[in-house]
């Protein structure tokens, strides 16, 4: 039928012929591509041709997305900012708590070591609160009579002497700090073993060594440690460091100002030393003068 077609209807090769040609080509391409990866270059070439169409297909979506993003960005950013702020606050609080815990842990470890280094038994106590009286430097700690705390026991921290137990209740006890006014600690200068007594001058005040001659051999920066001669503080606990010495000629005594070495105002855990040493009886009729605790202020 097609052989008799006029020229107008002539279409070149018959469709079946074309189909055969093209299907052979395409099948060859399939095999070549799938099994031998021969057609990657063809693919590259065709993809260059196709790229504008792909761009056309995807670009409107990109534009739409960037546009909507542009408009929603402000609100999104605000919300995100707020969220991040909250998160940061929470994280900061947690970090602070973490730091505090770390510091506390460190102190506890140090106290633990300190405790182990003492032969005599000692107890770890936690500070409950400061005494409310502003004229005195007192602390309330969470162990009392039931825990075997007795008045007169020395209280130390990781560095040095903090004070002394002066009053006990069944569950709590009161610590008089070395900065308390007229609290006395018998000390000696570590450098030259000079024995003396250091006095407190009140809360948040430095310590003072009184009644020393202007030419006494004490220098700035000297460490004062407990001498141990009172039977209350074990010998060798750090107490204070000499801040400055005022040797004015107008006064009969040198004015020696010291700073406590222990962080008396800074932490939560203290160690109560149980140093109930058996002392030999006092030789003569006892006079109350060497009594450590002065009741007055």
């Amino acid at each position: 039928m097609q052989a008799t077609q006029p020229a107008f209807f002539r279409q070149g090769p018959k469709p079946l012929t074309r189909l055969l040609i093209f299907s052979v080509i395409s099948l060859a391409m399939i095999v070549g591509d799938a099994h031998f990866k021969m057609l990657d270059r063809v693919r590259e070439k065709v993809s260059v041709v196709l790229y504008p169409l792909q761009w056309l297909a995807t670009e409107p979506f990109e534009i739409a997305r960037t546009t909507t993003q542009f408009f929603s960005r402000q609100a999104e950013l605000l919300a995100e900012n707020r969220r991040l702020n909250d998160a940061q606050l929470v994280a900061q609080a947690q970090a602070m708590k973490m730091k505090a815990l770390e510091a506390e842990n460190l102190r506890l470890r140090q106290l633990d070591e300190r405790q182990a280094s003492f032969g005599s038994p000692s107890q770890l106590v936690e500070i409950l609160y400061n005494g409310r009286d502003p004229f005195t430097a007192r602390l309330i700690v969470d162990r009392g009579e039931r825990a075997g705390i007795a008045p007169g026991q020395a209280v130390i921290d990781t560095v040095g002497v903090v004070g002394q137990i002066i009053r006990i209740q069944p569950l709590t006890s009161e610590v008089r700090m070395i900065t308390d006014r007229d609290q006395m600690v018998p000390v000696m200068v570590e450098r030259n073993q000079l024995r003396t007594v250091i006095y407190g001058m009140g809360r948040n005040q430095p310590l003072e060594v009184r009644n020393m001659a202007p030419n006494v051999d004490i220098k700035e920066g000297d460490r004062l440690v407990t001498s141990g001669i009172d039977g209350i503080y074990p010998a060798g606990l750090a107490v204070a460091r000499v801040l400055r010495i005022d040797r004015s000629a107008s006064s009969a005594f040198a004015r020696i100002v010291c700073a406590p070495l222990a962080d008396v105002d800074q932490h939560r855990f203290l160690l109560v030393l149980n140093t109930a040493r058996v002392l030999p009886p006092y030789p003569v009729t006892p006079t109350p003068t060497p009594d450590k605790k002065k009741r007055g202020r």
């Binding site: 469709p15 080509i25 395409s26 391409m29 399939i30 070549g32 057609l39 063809v42 065709v46 993809s47």
Partner: peptide
């Protein structure tokens, strides 16, 4: 439009879709 055009378009679709080359063409 005949078999040849269809074949060409098929090759384009194969490349665009990332298929086996010749699948759409065939």
């Amino acid at each position: 439009v005949g078999v040849g055009v269809a074949f060409m378009l098929g090759v384009l679709m194969d490349v665009g879709d990332g298929n086996v080359l010749g699948q759409h063409a065939f």
